[in-house]
Design a protein around this nucleic acid. Sequence first.
DNA 1: CACTAGGTAGACAGGTTTGTCTACCTAGTG
DNA 2: CACTAGGTAGACAAACCTGTCTACCTAGTG
Lengths: 197, 197
Amino acid sequence: MSAKQKILDTAAKLFYERGVNSTGIDLIIAQANVAKASLYNNFESKEHLVAKYLEMLRLKFEERLATAVSVRGRTVAVPFDLLEEIVVEGEFFGCPFTNALTELPDSKLVKAEVTRYRDVVMNYFAGVATTEVVPQLMLVYDGVFTSCKLDPDRTSVVVARRLAQSLVDRFPSDPLHATRGSVACTAVVGSHETHSS
Amino acid sequence: MSAKQKILDTAAKLFYERGVNSTGIDLIIAQANVAKASLYNNFESKEHLVAKYLEMLRLKFEERLATAVSVRGRTVAVPFDLLEEIVVEGEFFGCPFTNALTELPDSKLVKAEVTRYRDVVMNYFAGVATTEVVPQLMLVYDGVFTSCKLDPDRTSVVVARRLAQSLVDRFPSDPLHATRGSVACTAVVGSHETHSS
DNA sequence: CACTAGGTAGACAGGTTTGTCTACCTAGTG
DNA sequence: CACTAGGTAGACAAACCTGTCTACCTAGTG
């Protein structure tokens, strides 16, 4: 395995679990078993490394999204399913993109990668819901990372998926002058749910 | 104005706008026009200062919440109205609590303050909705900070308020328990005990 | 007046960080 | 063989950072 990939993989793990600013270059190269020069030969600076780390995450996400869609179909639940896979396995540290931007608020590189990632998500939601619902879905999707990070209870992802599903389902009617429908609502929220172990 | 308060106010502004880790002690004391000894006489460490900063924000939030409730009534919209006031005035840097925890993930002091703040919010939502809806409202409330931070478009807060309102409307009460939520809730939230140390 | 609480100014120690640089090594290829 | 691309090892500079310390000042109070 090339030094570049070893660095990227090690940095990804450390950046995510310990935070970007708490992870020094020296720690990365020690854990990756590479020399410092290898890092600076392959990456212009730490900021560039962070950007590449985020780019890698986005590419992986796009890949997993495509795979899941081809298996389960293009539904609003898929992004939440993917998140659930991560949340259940051990510790969860929130959204790596928003985390990185919080730690490096002045980095244009990081900001660009975050935007690119969000565009992927928005695009996906735009494919399963009308344009008015997309901001609502983004709201729920943004929220689930924070809730999962801060609540010891990890059921947020289930709540979020169900909520997102209900938003898509009931869309045609406007929430405001919707059918007051306890029927529609209970049906929507109460029913459904294929998996969710 | 006491040096302690000058430090706290200056630190609050800097911590929020520039981030905790990017704000050095030297910058704080320079902008506050106080001596370094004044800072360390009043605050045990930088971490303690950050915790006090978050505590101050929470107290202000509780105060504004109480005022708004006494004026507009205890509705689900109030927390979103308060957020809107902040979002519209110039730049918005996201939730100061989650930001601080992202920057200092190992700080127990910070974690405790974040939890205390979230308890206030959850308590409030528990006062306007049934227990099943509260996690959904938290999801939307968590999401609106991220969305407002990352989307140049600040309409997220409007979308979020409307969504929260529709969630509450859909569950005016639990059919089994038959009571209109707001009544029971006022009791719950109204019985705020003074802080138990 | 004398005392004290709280303030100022700033040097300094000890640590951490990123990024550069020199010197050397090694596997693969023409 | 000779060359090269990419790697190792680690010293080092320069710039931060937090927290401590000495020395001095000043307004209010008994």
